[in-house]
Design a protein around this nucleic acid. Sequence first.
RNA 1: GCCGGGGUAGCUCAGUGGUAGAGCGAAGGACUGAAAAUCCUUGCGUCGCCAGUCCGAUUCUGGCCCUCGGCA
Length: 345
Amino acid sequence: MNTSITTASQLIKLVDSHLKTAKRQRKIPLLAVIGPTASGKTAFGIALASHFNGEIVSSDSRQIYRGMMIGTAQPTAKEKAQARHYLVDFLEPDQPFNLAEYQRLATAKLQDIEKRGKLPLLVGGTGLYISSITENYLLPDSQPDQELRLKMNKLAEEQGKEAVHLLLEKLDPEAAKRIHHNNLRYVIRALEIACRKKKFSAVSTAGQSPDKSPEQSPFYPLFLEVRWPREILYQRIEKRIDQQMEQGLLKEVKNLLTKYDENLPSISSLGYRELGLYLQDKITLADALELFKKNTRNFAKRQLTWFRKFPQVYSIPGEALSEVINDLLTVRPAGTGKTARPKEK
RNA sequence: GCCGGGGUAGCUCAGUGGUAGAGCGAAGGACUGAAAAUCCUUGCGUCGCCAGUCCGAUUCUGGCCCUCGGCA
């Protein structure tokens, strides 16, 4: 289901009623601002936070890294002054990070915000991270195993990806059926889980598909999606990349590459990878920018695919966004906290 | 104006007397510990226009239009 919201008053009404329902259900209300890259989530999130007395937890897998402010479009200092942000700009680019850790950190932060009487917001475009919170993923008890990953990657190189998939077929036929043999990354992860289950077979539920339990989630999310016509979105992506270049993205990338390995997940983010190719003289700057833009468009498309599966989403047409933001920021007289959520108990 | 190359999918091009394909792009999809990652699926388009030959032409012939290169 999908409903369109075009004015601030509609939005305020919607949020107020959502807060009431959450209270009735004894859950923590959560505003989840979603949308593809360059759709305007950051500004929208800040306006919501400011209007509803909220604080923002990022659900962006790349804004977590330090020293990557331009390329990942982290909130600026000015924006951070308008609303508190968490899980942004806090991790060195060579530090490992993963879904489980995100889920743990984000959950704790969101709960903490609520305890302090503020409204928690989740703002960002990483579908997997969002879902892990809003759908309450129950992650399998299986740590990443770097040694196994290396071994399996080597096996794939020597004997082909099918060889690795064949291994999975023996250990977990169900998972093997679900995962395409070319998707080496997924196959290896499934092997990690399968090996773990084998060791602790007493408690395993073999071959079960991944689990979630939204009913038992502590949160009651309201999805707000910023939506643009496809062509306009692509124009915005192009424009933003040009702006990032003007802000000195090339210098930022250069700086990171002198310190870090180009194969790190952080450094292989959009823009960093393409500009890295240019800095290594492998392609021209014009080609790098074109590739950067194309890859970003493709990424936006994947994000949209992910968001389509959320059951109930309220969409704000991009054309109406700036007025909504403006109204959110002006409706509430500054400092009175008049429309702030009343604290229960 | 003359000589030559070419006009086929959004782009670059391959190809055949029985109405066509590859790469790129694009679109759609999957996704539970690397996720801005990783992976899967999808190609009827007046084969430049008009006429002729032929059972049949995108493929051959003629004319026209357009385009690129060379010479003027």
